[in-house]
Structure formats: C-alpha cells, structure tokens
Amino acid sequence: MDQELNMRFMEVAMRHVQEGQSFLNNKGIELDMHDLQPALEMLMQVMSEAYEMGYEDAKENK
C-alpha cells in the first residue's frame, strides 16, 4: 500500500480514537493505546480494502 495513503488512513483513525475509547469505557472495557493498537491495525486494513473496492469500482464505471 502507498505510504502516503497509509498515513492518511492513520490520520482518520486517530481522529476517532477518543470516541472509540470513550465508547469502550462506557461499556466497562478499559483499554490504553497499547491495547488499542491491534484494533487500529484492523481498522487500517478495513479502510484499505474499502479504498481498493472504491478504486476498482470507479475504474470499471468510467
């Protein structure tokens, strides 16, 4: 994956970390940033796959 795109995905993910952490805390699940790292990596993979799907769809519908 393009490093610049990866950084943009990380910026998006980081904008929502506090919201996600608050949601988990309200559910009684306390996690620190170290614990959240695997979830962030999974989110990055999801965003990458969604981007690729959109990219392929856009190419097909030109």
Rank of each mutant, 00 (worst) to 15 (best):
N6S: 06
L24Y: 12
D35F: 00
N61S: 10
Q18T: 15
E49M: 02
G28N: 11
E19C: 04
E52Q: 11
E41Y: 02
K27P: 11
M42S: 09
N61T: 13
Q45L: 01
S48I: 07
M44T: 05
V17H: 01
A13R: 03
E41T: 01
F9H: 08
F23A: 11
M44S: 10
E4Y: 08
G28M: 09
D32L: 00
E11L: 00
D35I: 02
I29C: 13
M33G: 03
V17D: 03
N25M: 11
N26P: 09
K59I: 14
V46M: 07
A50E: 14
M7D: 11
L31K: 13
M33R: 03
N61I: 13
E19D: 15
Y55F: 11
K59F: 07
R15V: 06
G54W: 04
E4L: 09
Y51P: 06
S48Q: 10
R8P: 07
N61M: 13
S22G: 10
V17P: 09
S22I: 11
M53P: 15
M47H: 06
E49N: 06
L36R: 06
I29P: 12
M42K: 10
Q45A: 02
E56D: 09
R15E: 15
A50T: 14
Y55S: 12
N25D: 13
E4T: 12
D32C: 01
Q21A: 00
N6F: 01
G54C: 15
V12Y: 02
S22V: 14
L40I: 09
E30V: 03
M14S: 02
L24W: 06
K27R: 10
E11Y: 03
L36Y: 01
F23H: 15
E56F: 00
N6L: 07
H34F: 05
E60H: 15
M10E: 15
S48K: 10
F9E: 04
M33I: 04
L5F: 06
M44N: 09
D57T: 11
I29Q: 06
L40T: 01
E11C: 01
H34Q: 13
L5T: 13
M33S: 06
Q21G: 00
V46N: 10
I29M: 08
M14Q: 02
M33L: 07
L36P: 14
Q37S: 06
A58T: 10
L36Q: 02
R8I: 03
L43G: 04
V17F: 00
L24M: 10
E4F: 05
E52C: 02
Q45H: 01
L43H: 02
R8S: 08
E41D: 08
A13W: 00
Q21P: 09
A50F: 04
A39H: 14
N25S: 08
N25L: 04
R15L: 04
K59M: 14
Q21Y: 00
L31S: 13
K59R: 15
E56K: 02
K59A: 09
N26M: 05
A50M: 12
G28Y: 06
Q37T: 14
E49G: 04
N26D: 14
E11D: 08
E56R: 03
M42H: 12
V46S: 02
M44D: 07
G54V: 12
M10Y: 01
K59H: 14
E19S: 07
G28C: 03
E19Q: 14
